[in-house]
């Protein structure tokens, strides 16, 4: 019974859920990419603050990391969803606005994923920076290389090389965390599966399909990260 109805339920025609699930998978991908990219900025800033931001900056960055790696991601998302609008409303009142200000579900999701992944990415960037050979920086400085050039030619390429494996892990974490954004009502893959399971009463079919789509996205993007890693290792002797 289940195998025959499976075809109908997941079909792409009218009344079928195939197109809706694929569209939701695209939303999940877009949400994760945007969250990861914004998290890279936050993580980069936090890593910079910890490495050279002075005592206060380092303490703030440390607190940020401890907080968001220690609190369940579901709670972070809830807090941002309910708290974010309050914050925005306060800001808009300062700017002379009135009434309430809402952040769309997609933006809330991106912000939540950025804050969570930023806490993890900061650790990755910090570790990668510390792995750069000090001698190379000293040599660059001895040549009188200006700081921006040093950043572009010496630090950035190596930082990326050392950070890539860690970033791959964080990316996988972001992709899976994006499922939790379903609690804000955004119709991403997990939400769509819940909606389908509820209206067709075929939860097994829908949760299996969603799991399979997550797995496909994870495997494809994982392969991309491995290719990037290999590329970043060009010219490096591997023991």
């Amino acid at each position: 019974m289940i195998s025959s109805s499976l075809f109908e339920v997941l079909s792409f025609g009218a009344g079928g859920w195939g197109a809706a699930l694929l569209k939701a998978a695209l939303t999940t991908t877009a949400l994760s990419i945007a969250g990861f990219a914004a998290g890279a900025v936050l993580g980069g800033l936090a890593a910079f603050a910890r490495l050279s931001g002075g005592a206060l900056g380092a303490a703030l960055a440390d607190g940020y990391g401890t907080l968001f790696r220690g609190v369940p991601d579901l709670l972070t998302i809830y807090l941002l969803y309910f708290g974010g609008s309050v914050g925005l409303t306060v800001v808009s009142h300062w700017l002379g606005g009135q009434g309430f200000v809402g952040l769309p579900a997609f933006a809330t999701g991106v912000a939540a994923l950025a804050i969570i992944s930023g806490a993890y990415q900061a650790e990755v960037y910090r570790g990668a920076y510390l792995a750069i050979h000090r001698g190379e920086l000293e040599a660059a400085r001895a040549f009188g290389m200006p700081h921006p050039t040093m950043l572009r030619r010496i630090i950035a390429p190596q930082l990326l090389r050392y950070a890539l494996p860690g970033l791959g892990n964080v990316w996988q974490l972001v992709l899976k965390d994006s499922a939790l954004v379903s609690v804000t009502g955004l119709v991403e893959l997990m939400r769509q599966a819940q909606v389908g399971a509820g209206s067709t009463r075929q939860p097994f079919v829908f949760y299996c399909s969603a799991a399979a789509l997550y797995l496909i996205i994870a495997l494809l993007t994982g392969a991309l990260f491995r290719r990037a890693e290999r590329r970043s290792l060009r010219g490096v002797r591997i023991a």
């Binding site: 289940i2 499922a179 379903s182 997990m190 299996c208 997550y214 797995l215 495997l219």
Partner: peptide, 23 residues
């Protein structure tokens, strides 16, 4: 390992609870 690391824990919980409930 790939299946359980590549899918969200939330999906696993739903699949085991509601999904298997179908059988």
């Amino acid at each position: 390992v790939a299946a359980f690391r590549g899918t969200p824990l939330l999906a696993q919980i739903f699949l085991i609870y509601y999904g298997l409930g179908q059988f």
